[in-house]
Amino acid sequence: MNKMAGSSMGEDTIGAIQEGIRNSAARMLESGEIDVFIGYEDGTLPLRTTPVFITCPEDAERLVWSPICENSLTCYLPKFQGTVGVVVKGCDVRTLVNLILENQVSRDKVKIVGVPCKGIIDRDRVGKALGTDRIIRSAKATRRSLMLEGDGFEVEMEIQDVLAPSCEVCRYPVPVLFDVLVGNESMARDGKDPEAGYLEVAQFAELEPDARFSFFAQEIERCIQCYACRQACPLCYCPECFVDRQSPKWISRWRGLSDKILFHLGRVLHVAGRCVDCGACRRACPVGIDLRLLTKNMEKAAKDLFDYESGLDIGGVPLLATYRREDPDDFIL
C-alpha cells in the first residue's frame, strides 16, 4: 500500500513541524507529564493519515505531519481519562477552547501541541481536479505541491488549488492557545478576513426561500443517517443525542426528509455560537452533503448579531451562556 511517507519530506517546514511534534510527544511521555499522546500517523491509503494514540516515547517516531492531517483530534478528548497530549491546528484548538469552557476537558489535563497550519488538502477536490475514476496509487505532499501517481499518470497540483473549503477561508491558522508551538507563526498561511468566509452564505441567503428550501431538501434527502457528521464533530459530545432517544421518539428513520432535516437543523442549532468551521462534518459525510453552508450561516449569525467568534478566548464565556440587555432580539419576536 503506497502512501504519503511522512518522513521523506526533506528539510522543509513540514519536516521541521513533524520533528517538533515527535520531539514534544517523546519528551512529554518520557517526563510523565502525559499518559497518552494523540497525533497522526501514516494512513493505509494515498492522501490519508490516521489518528494514533502513542503511549511510549519510542513510538513517537510514528507521528507524521503533512497537509493531509485532516482529522480533528480534539473529538477524542472528552472521553479520555488521565492527561493527554494532542496535536492541534488553528481550527482544532478553537474546538478545544470550547471544550474547556464547557467543562468537557480540564485545561490541566491536556498538553496542547500547536501547529502553524498551511491548510489541509481536500480529497474530493483532488479527485475532481484529477478526473473521476483515475485511481491514485501514491501521493506525496511538500509545502506547496502535491504529487500524485496512478496507473499511467503523474500529476502535480498546487496545494493552494485543492485546499479544503474551510481552510481557504480560515481566519486563525495559528493556534490561539498552546503549550508548545512547533515551528513558528510565519509557517502558517495568512488568516482571512471573516467576510471572505461568509460570502457564500450571504449569497445563498439572497435566494428566494423556495429556492433555498429546495436546495436543502435535495442535499438532505441524500443523508443516510449514519451520523458521521455528528461523530466527527469535536463539539458534538452529548452522551445521548436527541435522535437516539426512544421515549419520546424525536425522529423516525422512515422515508423521512422532514426527520432528516430535523436532525441537521437540530445539530446545527446546537453548535451555533460554538462551531469553528473545522470542516470535520463535511469531510466525514460519505455522500458529500455540504453541511458547512448550514454551520457557516450560524457562525455568521453569531458574528453579525453578537460580534462573537467562537473558541478564541479561554477566559471568556460561551455565547449561549451570556445575556446582555442590549442583545438584539428582533429575530426572535
Binding site: 490516521t50 489518528p51 473529538c75 443516510i224 443517517q225 449514519c226 458521521a228 461523530q231 466527527a232 466525514a284
Partner: peptide
Amino acid sequence: KCLGCAVCTY
C-alpha cells in the same frame, strides 16, 4: 480511533 458512526455498516 473509531468514531462510532455507521459509515462502515451502512
